[in-house]
Simulated scan of single mutants.
Amino acid sequence: MTTVHTIEELTALLPDPAPGRRTLLGIAGPPGAGKSTVAAALAGLDPEHHALVPLDGFHLADQALVALGLLDRKGAPETFDAHGYAALLARLASAPGHTVYAPAFERRLEQPLANALPVAPSCTLIITEGNYLLLDAPGWRDVRSHLDEVWFVDVEPGLRRRRLVARHILFGKTPAAAEDWVRRVDEPNAARVAATRDRADRILDLSEWRLC
C-alpha cells in the first residue's frame, strides 16, 4: 500500500503514456473513499490531454430502477449499465478522431445525464472512477479488460462513513435518513468493493490526503 498526501505524489504514480494510443486509468474503491476527488485532481492537471469519465453516468435512471424493483438498492452493481460502460471504454480506447460524448451524473437530481462530458481527440489519458471496476462479474470483467491500470483508493473506515453521511445530507437527506442509507445500502456495497481490493494494480491510502 502507498500512502499519498499530495497531488504531486499522485502524479508521480501515473502510468507512462503508450505511444500511438490512449491510456485508460481506473480508480476504484468503496463509497466515500475519495475516488472522485482524486480523479478530478488528475484530470485537472492537463485538461487538454486528460479526460474524466466517471462510472456514475451509467447509473440506471430511477424509472428503470422502479421497473426492476431496485430503487431501494441504488448504487449496487446491478443498478448500473456495466455493458454500456464497457462499450464506451472500448470506444474511448480506440482513440477516434472525433469528440466522444460520455454521460455524467447529476447528484442534485440523482439522475444520469446523457452526452454531458465531451472527450476531445486530443485526450491521451482517460481517467475513470467507480466502485466496481474490479468486480468479477458479467459486464464488469469487460470493463477491467479495457483499463491499462486500476488503482484502489482506501481510507480509514470511520472517516469514509462520516464523509458519506455528510454527502447525503448535503444533497437533501435528513441526518437520520443519511445514517440509515449508509448503514443499509452504502456499507454492504463497500464490503463488496473491499473484496476486489487485491485485484488492483496499486493500492493507495488517502487517509492523510490533502489537495495542494
Rank of each mutant, 00 (worst) to 15 (best):
Q111F: 08
H83G: 14
G75S: 13
A104N: 13
L70C: 14
A39K: 01
L89P: 01
L113T: 14
L52G: 00
S122M: 07
A93N: 03
L125S: 05
A120L: 13
P96L: 03
T99A: 02
Y85W: 00
A61T: 12
L60H: 10
G29H: 10
D136C: 10
C123Q: 13
G34D: 10
A137Q: 13
E129Y: 00
H50D: 05
T37M: 11
P47H: 07
L135T: 06
A67P: 10
L70K: 14
F80L: 08
V66D: 15
P17F: 11
L45E: 12
A76R: 12
A86H: 06
H49E: 09
L45N: 11
A33L: 12
C123Y: 04
G69E: 09
G69A: 11
G84Q: 02
N131D: 04
K35Y: 10
G97H: 01
P17H: 09
R108P: 09
P17D: 09
P118D: 09
V53E: 01
R73L: 14
G20D: 09
L117M: 09
G26N: 04
A33P: 11
R108M: 12
A67F: 08
G29T: 07
P118H: 08
H50M: 06
R21A: 12
P96Y: 03
A102R: 03
A104G: 15
D56N: 06
A12R: 07
H98G: 05
T37Q: 10
H98M: 05
A67Y: 08
P77G: 06
S94F: 06
S122D: 08
P103H: 04
P77V: 05
D16E: 13
L71M: 13
N115H: 15
L70N: 14
T6K: 07
T128I: 02
I127E: 03
L13Y: 00
H49P: 07
A43F: 04
A39G: 01
L71E: 15
L14V: 06
L55W: 00
P118L: 09
A102D: 04
T79H: 11
G29R: 08
L13D: 01
G130L: 04
L92V: 01
A87D: 06
A93P: 06
G69M: 10
T11G: 01
L135P: 04
I7G: 10
R108C: 11
V66R: 15
V38M: 08
E106V: 10
A93C: 07
P121C: 04
F105Y: 10
P17G: 09
A28Y: 02
R107V: 07
G32I: 11
L71I: 15
L134N: 05
G32S: 08
